[in-house]
């Protein structure tokens, strides 16, 4: 029996707009086990990003339960959620979200600052992880001095530096060209296969989703498909 890292039951999210309350997620149920590589697909407005933000503890659900590493997040304080984001979760954004004033090394080491790690520890950890994502020698550059693909590698390094249990990525290749996109996906695949990191990636591109083992497809805030990625694409091709 594999370890359940994430357990979602009856997850709903609605927003209050001038036109009234709008429900984006209509009750999601799924479980993600340690070591899985999951792609989340769906058309625009299907609620992919909303779901990822809740799973990444950046946003809160309106109702339903969401457990991560055995802990129920609905009863957590904002500080406890911050602790989860620091310890358990790594998040990679479409727009990289690096601090422009700060060196690559300090960007990568930033999560460790909030763990009160000393400078030497932070630097060593940042250098090690930068080497892993293939950015040796860029430690003292700034984000605006490197390419988009390299910036996304920095963002991945930052997400990994705290040794999280799960990595969430929201359209990580959305701002990148095709070649660079596949390089980034190869990096993700390696992290999953060799380092056993659990991965959950939102994308709207089929060839990106094909890197994953499992596919969750959202349509209008409901799960439309949840199963092996290969089976889904083979069925579609046929």
């Amino acid at each position: 029996m594999p370890e359940a890292l994430i357990r979602v039951q009856g997850l709903k999210k609605s927003y209050v707009s001038p036109a009234g309350s709008v429900e984006i997620l209509h009750g999601l149920d799924f479980q993600i086990n340690a070591g899985e590589f999951v792609a989340v697909m769906g058309p625009s407005g299907s609620g992919k990003s909303t779901m990822m933000n809740i799973l990444g503890c950046l946003d809160t659900a309106s109702s339903g339960t969401f457990e991560i590493a055995g802990k129920d997040t609905s009863k957590m304080s904002s500080d406890q959620l911050a602790g989860l984001r620091n310890d358990v979760i790594g998040f990679v954004f479409q727009g990289f979200n690096l601090l422009q004033r700060t060196t690559i090394e300090d960007n990568v080491a930033l999560p460790l600052v909030y763990r009160s790690a000393d400078k030497a520890t932070r630097r060593a950890a940042a250098r090690e992880i930068l080497a892993k994502v293939g950015l040796d020698g860029y430690a003292l550059s700034r984000p605006n001095q490197i390419s988009g693909g390299q910036q996304q590698r920095v963002a991945i390094a930052r997400a990994l530096v705290g040794k999280p249990k799960i990595l969430f990525a929201d359209e990580p290749t959305g701002n990148l060209d095709t070649t660079t996109s596949h390089e980034i996906m190869d990096l993700f695949t390696g992290l999953n296969r060799q380092d056993g990191i659990t991965l959950m990636i939102v994308t709207h591109e089929a060839d990106i989703a094909q890197y994953a083992d499992r596919l969750i497809r959202l349509v209008d805030g409901r799960i439309d498909y949840d199963g092996p990625a290969r089976a889904y694409f083979q069925e579609r091709a046929a």
Partner: peptide, 12 residues
């Protein structure tokens, strides 16, 4: 937002 996303608490 970025700082919070990677674990900064309110007091930080």
């Amino acid at each position: 937002g970025i700082r919070m996303a990677i674990g900064a608490r309110q007091r930080d």
